[in-house]
Write a protein that binds this DNA or RNA. Structure first.
Lengths: 229, 229
DNA sequence: TTTTGACTTTTGGTATACAATATGCCATAT
DNA sequence: ATATGGCATATTGTATACCAAAAGTCAAAA
C-alpha cells in the first residue's frame, strides 16, 4: 500500500513550476498522511535531505509549512515530530469538519448543477459497488471524492481551503479506522440519505444529515482510538 | 496609529524561546494586519533582512509561514506580495467566519461559565462606552475581544485555530472599514441581541444571530470595497 | 513607437560554518 | 546493579557566500 491515493494531484507538466519547498511539503505530507511515517516519529533534517536529495533550506521551509497545517509539531531546538492528536482532539476536529460540511451542503443545494449531482450520484453507486465487493480502499477513496465534490459544489474557496486542511489532518486516522472497522460500510445508509437530500436540494435537511454523518464517523473511529495510546 | 493592537501577544519572558523565524512572522503579520504594508506591495527579502537585522534563512521561513496563512502570495521567482483579496473573496471569508462563529455560539451556550458571561457582558458595556465616546479604535478592539471570548468559550482548539487564521486575513479590512463607515456603530444593536441570547443560553438563537451578524458586517464593508480596486 | 537585447536585480537553491542546545554514553559513586 | 554527573557527539538555529535562472530595466535600433 505504498500509494494509497494521490492527495496532492499535480500535473506532471506543472511540477517543475512548483517551488522545491512545495514539492517537498507535498511529498512529506503524502508520506505522513499515508502513514509511511508514524505519529511521534522524529524527522531528522539531514536524513530527509539525503533521502530526497535536497538541501536543508527548502526542506526547512517545507517543515514550516507542514507545521502550520498541524501535521507535524516543531519543537524548538529539537526538530519536527509527526503530530499524534489525542482522541479528544480528533473528536474536536471531526465536529468542526461536520460544521464545515454542513455549510457546504447548505450552499451546494443552491449552486450545484444537475451535472454535478449526476456525477456525485455516479460516485455514490461506484462506492456501493466497492462496498459490495469488499474493496475497502476503493470504498474509502470514493467516499473522500464524494465529500470533496460536495465541498466544491459550495463554490467557496475559503471553505475548500479550511476543509482540505482539516481533512489532511484526519486522513490517516480515518483511513486506518476504515481498514480496521468491522462495520466499515456503516456510512452507506447515511450516504443514501445525503444523496436524497441533495437531489431534492433540501438545504436544511442535507446540512443536518452531514453534520450527523461526521458525528457517527467519530463514533466509529473512537472504537479504534484507545488501542493506539 | 503605529500600534493598533497586540495581535500576537507574546510574554516578554518567553519571546526568547521563540524561533527567530516565528518572531519575524509575528512581526510581519502585525505589520500586514495593521496596514503598515499595503496590499499589492512587494516584499523584498534583503530589504526586510536589513530592516529587521536578520539573515535570509529565517526570513524566508517566515514568509512561507505567512503564505500558508494566505496573508501573502508567494509568486515563483518573483517573491512575496501582500495579498489583496477581492470583494468576492472577502464576502466568502466572512460567510465562512459567520459559520464558525455560529458554531462557536452554539457550543458556548453549553460550556460557558457564568464568570465568562459576566466578563463578556463587561466587555460589551465597555464597547458601548467607547461607542458613546466616539472612540472607534477602542470600539473595534473591544468588538474583537468579545468575539474572541465567545470563540474561546466554545472550548474547541480546532475552531479557535481556524477562526484566528480567518480573522487575521480579514483584520485589516475590517479595521479600515470600521474607520471609514458612517454608521460604524451599527453592530451595537446586534450585540445587544447576542448578549441576550448568550445569557439565556439559547444556542439556536445565538447561532442564528451570529451568522446574521457577520452577514451584516459584509454589508457594511462592501460599501468601502469598490473604491479600493 | 515598438522591439530587441544586453545589463542589473532578485529570487531559488546549495553548501558551509558556527554557536547553542539536546542527546547519548561512560565513568564514578552509592 | 543502579543512579548521577559530566563529557563527547549529534542536531538544530542562524548567518553567509555563491551561483543559476527568472524577472525587471533601460537604452539603442528598426
Amino acid at each position: 500500500m505504498s500509494q494509497i491515493v494521490e492527495l496532492t494531484p499535480k500535473e506532471n507538466s506543472d511540477i517543475n513550476r512548483l517551488n522545491l519547498s512545495e514539492q517537498i511539503a507535498n511529498r512529506l505530507r503524502d508520506m505522513i498522511i499515508q502513514n509511511q511515517m508514524s505519529p511521534g516519529d522524529r524527522i531528522r533534517e539531514r536524513e530527509i535531505c539525503k533521502e530526497l536529495q535536497v538541501s536543508r533550506t527548502p526542506l526547512r521551509e517545507a517543515l514550516h509549512k507542514l507545521a502550520s497545517e498541524c501535521l507535524i509539531d516543531l519543537i524548538p531546538n529539537c526538530g519536527a515530530v509527526i503530530s499524534s492528536p489525542s482522541g479528544d482532539e480528533i473528536a474536536d476536529m471531526l465536529r468542526v469538519l461536520g460544521v464545515l460540511e454542513a455549510f457546504a451542503g447548505e450552499r451546494a443545494c443552491e449552486s450545484i448543477t444537475e451535472e454535478e449531482i449526476a456525477e456525485i450520484k455516479a460516485l455514490h453507486y461506484e462506492m456501493l459497488a466497492a462496498f459490495s465487493r469488499g474493496d475497502r480502499l476503493q470504498y474509502f477513496k470514493l467516499n473522500q471524492r464524494i465529500h470533496l465534490a460536495l465541498i466544491k459544489a459550495a463554490r467557496s474557496e475559503t471553505l475548500l481551503a479550511l476543509h482540505s486542511r482539516l481533512n489532511a489532518r484526519l486522513y490517516r486516522i480515518r483511513y486506518q479506522s476504515n481498514l480496521k472497522n468491522e462495520q466499515w460500510g456503516g456510512a452507506v445508509e447515511e450516504h443514501d440519505n445525503i444523496m436524497a437530500a441533495l437531489e431534492e436540494r433540501d438545504a436544511e435537511k442535507l446540512s443536518r444529515i452531514l453534520r450527523r454523518h461526521l458525528k457517527s464517523t467519530w463514533e466509529k473511529i473512537s472504537e479504534h482510538i484507545e488501542e493506539k495510546k
